[in-house]
Design a protein around this nucleic acid. Structure first.
Length: 378
DNA sequence: CAATGCGGGCATT
DNA sequence: AATGCCCGCATTG
């Protein structure tokens, strides 16, 4: 796969730099260029102060996607959509899988879901999860701006992420889905069960309807087939990493949309490592070295990782993503150069730092029980 | 359920 | 006025 990838990458970077860093426009300009000769390839991991001009046909651009966990931020300007980075969720114990990889989960975008997520445990060691907020923009989260103008979609990012990359959206979704399938098949562990009962009870007390649906529709999530369907339909255009066609990885659920993590089965790092890492032992070159101020370098420090394939406008998939996925696990990243942890409180101008408060520890319940038994990694 | 967008509202600068 | 962010609401998938 990926033959001629180099050429493609070169082209992309060319176009990216043409419209990007050297751009002579600013997202706030009254008028934006409409004489764009060539649009950029969608960039999954825009970092630093870059600018891109995408085709208004580009699906990912239309959806304002990013593999960073970005949430909508009201900037009181309906013309320009602003989104700020939520950072990355890591293990509070800073644990590592057997293969040395770290846990880098994708923060849930929805506030409520994020809070719930933080109550879950590390899929690897069951320890508490911790949200590392992004402070790459003068102490504030990195911000991304999107603006539709004519046949183009202008993108501009401000700030350089000062934290590792989280799972991609698709990877996180896959993880949740798999988890659902899992829980549908194997009875939940006692602890999880209890949690669920409590949660659903609480819910009923208010609303009055409800029981975990997923518990009622077992067959609905049969795995193998599920994958192919899920991915094939995820993004006709060109899915972001994870939308390959092959399960990004079999992960544990630590966030759990709807399904709580659970239990007592997983015993330590070994489990995850055995499931995730081991099988595919192939790891890219410098996979995972995270470097904050490296604009277009992938987790592997591979510049070509960035904006992959896919002509703006046309359909197609992301070979590179496929490639990547085949080499690495979403939330497990080589610990080699992990260096986040600078807690230097930034400006905290407003005195409020919800993230900090949310970061609260919560241990105990949960854990991960993944679909180990689901089926062997392929 | 959660991802997204939107826009009101509030505090700070 | 510009920013940053919280919050609820509505729409989607």
């Amino acid at each position: 796969m990926l033959k001629g990838a180099d050429d493609v990458v070169m082209e992309q970077e060319d176009s990216a730099s043409r419209n990007g860093e050297m751009a002579n426009w600013d997202i706030n300009d009254i008028k934006l260029p409409q004489d764009v000769k060539q649009t950029d390839w969608f960039q999954e991991w825009p970092d630093s102060y870059v600018k891109h001009i995408y085709s208004s046909e580009d699906k990912n651009a239309q959806r304002h996607h990013s593999s960073w966990a970005m949430r909508n931020t009201n900037n009181h300007n309906s013309r320009i959509l602003k989104k700020s980075c939520l950072g990355v969720v890591v293990c509070g114990n800073d644990c590592s899988a057997l293969d040395g990889r770290k846990i880098y989960l994708r923060p849930a975008i929805c506030d409520k879901a994020r809070q719930k997520q933080q109550r879950k445990c590390c899929p690897n060691c069951n320890g508490p999860l911790r949200l590392i907020s992004c402070r790459g923009h003068g102490g504030y989260p990195v911000t991304n701006f999107w603006r539709h103008e004519g046949r183009f979609i202008f993108f501009q990012s401000k700030g350089a992420h000062d934290h590792p990359r989280p799972e991609t959206k698709l990877e996180a979704e896959a993880r949740r889905s798999i988890q659902k399938a899992q829980t549908a098949f194997s009875p939940p562990c006692p602890r999880l069960k209890r949690i669920r009962e409590i949660e659903s009870l609480a819910g009923e007390m208010q609303t009055h309807d409800s029981l975990p649906l997923h518990l009622l529709k077992p067959e609905a999530y049969v795995v193998p087939r599920y994958f192919s369907q899920h991915f094939s339909k995820s993004s006709p255009e060109r899915p972001l990493s994870g939308g390959s066609g092959q399960p990004p990885y079999l992960g544990v659920d630590a966030e759990g949309a709807g399904s709580s993590p659970c239990c007592d089965k997983l015993e330590g790092p070994g489990a995850v490592a055995a499931l995730l890492g081991a099988p595919r032992g192939c790891r890219g070159p410098a996979l995972g070295s995270y470097e904050p101020f490296r604009p277009n370098a992938g987790p592997a420090g591979d510049p070509s990782y960035e904006g992959k394939p896919h002509p703006a406008g046309s359909g197609g998939c992301l070979p590179s993503s496929l490639y990547l996925l085949a080499q690495q696990e979403p939330y497990l990243v080589p610990a080699s150069t992990h260096h986040h942890r600078h807690r230097s409180a930034p400006p905290k101008a407003n005195g409020r730092d919800l993230e900090d408060e949310r970061r609260g520890l919560n241990l105990d319940y949960c854990s991960s029980e993944m679909f180990f038994n689901l089926y062997p990694l392929r």
